[in-house]
């Protein structure tokens, strides 16, 4: 029984961060119809920036977000303006290929700077454990869970109650009509993409403590993010957070209960099954 709680708790904690990773991608897809296949490589970029700041100034990952978040947001805006915007409106698949190319550039740029050996970035909370009954939780996971949910709620309120949030929703629903209402659609798209990448810098710091990082791990994060976004119905906010929790739990159950490769396969199997039988994602209501 304790194993069950352990798996559930671990899955929920990590799943919340997966949900956060996916929210950025979902927002971007909703506003500009772009699916970014270099999403995961931006996560590893964020992580390696933290590593660089740690090696240079012994900065804790949680502190270095003061630098990484604005930097990554700016990078996101530049990438959108110079690389992705010229492609929007072209065939959808060209953006896929462009971001695949970008993924190669990022991954190998990191490899050239940092080398291929797995690296760790220590943090002051890294090895702290919290014991509830017979369930052992790692403090970084709890921090990640709390911050992810707080951010998700913050984003939700931002979308609902601020002018910028309303303009994002307006562009998502009907870009043409939004433009007629005086919304600068191009600006909203750039800002959303930048916001999506900026969120990744935060998520990277949350995932970093205790995780060994390698330049080539980006693709796996991209795949996980895509799984979550698709499960959540692409643009449905609640659905995406739910999808994150499901993938997180599937991963935890797979590694704890099932031996060897089948355990690692579990999230993918669940994804393919849901994809085939609920192609619009988990949530029923037509996504807004």
């Amino acid at each position: 029984m304790s194993e069950l709680y352990q798996a559930l708790a671990q899955g929920l904690l990590i799943g919340a961060t997966y949900g956060l990773l996916a929210l950025g991608m979902g927002l971007v897809y909703g506003v500009s119809g772009v699916v970014n296949f270099s999403h995961g490589d931006f996560i590893s970029l964020g992580m390696f920036m933290c590593l660089a700041l740690y090696s240079a100034f012994a900065m804790d990952p949680y502190v270095s977000i003061i630098i990484t978040v604005p930097l990554m947001t700016a990078i996101g805006a530049l990438v959108y303006i110079f690389l992705i915007r010229p492609m929007v409106g072209h065939q959808f698949l060209m953006v896929v290929q462009l971001t695949l190319g970008l993924s190669l550039v990022l991954q190998n740029g990191i490899l050239m700077v940092f080398g291929g050996e797995p690296a760790r970035t220590p943090s002051f909370v890294e090895s702290k454990l919290i014991i509830l009954g017979d369930t052992v939780l790692r403090l970084p996971h709890i921090i990640a869970f709390v911050v992810s949910f707080a951010l998700a709620i913050g984003l939700y309120i931002m979308l609902r109650a601020t002018d910028f949030g309303r303009s994002i929703r307006a562009v998502h629903q009907n870009a043409h009509a939004a433009a007629l209402m005086g919304i600068n659609v191009g600006r909203v798209q750039v800002l959303t993409f930048a916001l999506g990448i900026g969120i990744l810098a935060l998520a990277a710091a949350l995932l970093l403590p205790g995780t060994p990082i390698q330049p080539n791990m980006g693709l796996r994060y991209t795949v996980i993010t895509l799984l979550v976004v698709v499960l959540g119905g692409m643009t449905n906010f609640v659905g995406i957070m739910l999808g994150g929790l499901i993938i997180g739990i599937a991963e935890a159950f797979g590694t704890i209960y099932l031996d060897g490769p089948i355990g690692l396969l579990l999230p993918y199997i669940i994804f393919v099954a849901i994809m085939l039988f609920r192609p619009k994602g988990l949530t029923w209501s037509s996504a807004r």
Partner: peptide, 22 residues
């Protein structure tokens, strides 16, 4: 000296080609 450089170049080439001649 620079592992990954050839993939890096592939990435740059593909991005340029897509932008210039899709």
């Amino acid at each position: 000296t620079l592992p990954g450089l050839h993939y890096f170049i592939y990435g740059i080439v593909v991005i340029s080609v897509i932008l210039v001649t899709p």
